[in-house]
């Protein structure tokens, strides 16, 4: 239950940390760190989100049930992302035995998605 009144000081501390994190994420983005750039940006975003949810939204002081309700949306978002990516990341892993289809895929799939065409695999 959120009837518990949180001290004002905590809100200011959280706000200050959010601002520091904003500065850090902006700063990190100025350097070329390869893949680590996205990783850092997303990690910091998640930390910021957790701070807002736990303190501003009082979840830290709330019942277990609230934790479940708050988590459910994110869990389901993860289900969607994981399974949809299971399609996009594995396109072309298994090639149809049908020669016509395979040829079609070689011609079209490699050029349709994106800037970096994949190497076509040799037919068995």
């Amino acid at each position: 239950m959120s009837t518990e009144i949180v001290s004002k000081k905590i809100y200011f501390v959280i706000w200050a940390s959010l601002m520091v994190l904003l500065f850090v994420t902006w700063g990190v983005a100025q350097f070329d760190l390869g893949l680590f750039n996205s990783l850092a940006a997303l990690t910091i975003a998640i930390i910021k989100m957790l701070l807002v949810i736990l303190y501003f939204m009082h979840v830290r002081y709330s019942s277990r049930l609230t934790w479940v309700f708050a988590g459910a949306g994110f869990l389901w978002l993860m289900i969607m992302i994981t399974l949809t990516l299971s399609d996009y990341t594995t396109r072309g892993f298994v090639r149809p035995y049908n020669r016509v289809l395979s040829n079609w895929q070689d011609k079209n799939w490699n050029h349709l998605p994106g800037d970096k065409p994949m190497e076509p695999r040799p037919l068995p």
């Binding site: 399974l83 299971s86 399609d87 594995t90 892993f93």
Partner: peptide, 22 residues
């Protein structure tokens, strides 16, 4: 029920790997 939707897309151009998972 939330993790099986890909079985509507077996012939839609979805990857065969994903098809197996679904």
């Amino acid at each position: 029920g939330f993790v099986v939707w890909g079985h509507h897309m077996f012939v839609s151009g979805q990857s065969v790997y994903a098809g197996m998972i679904f």
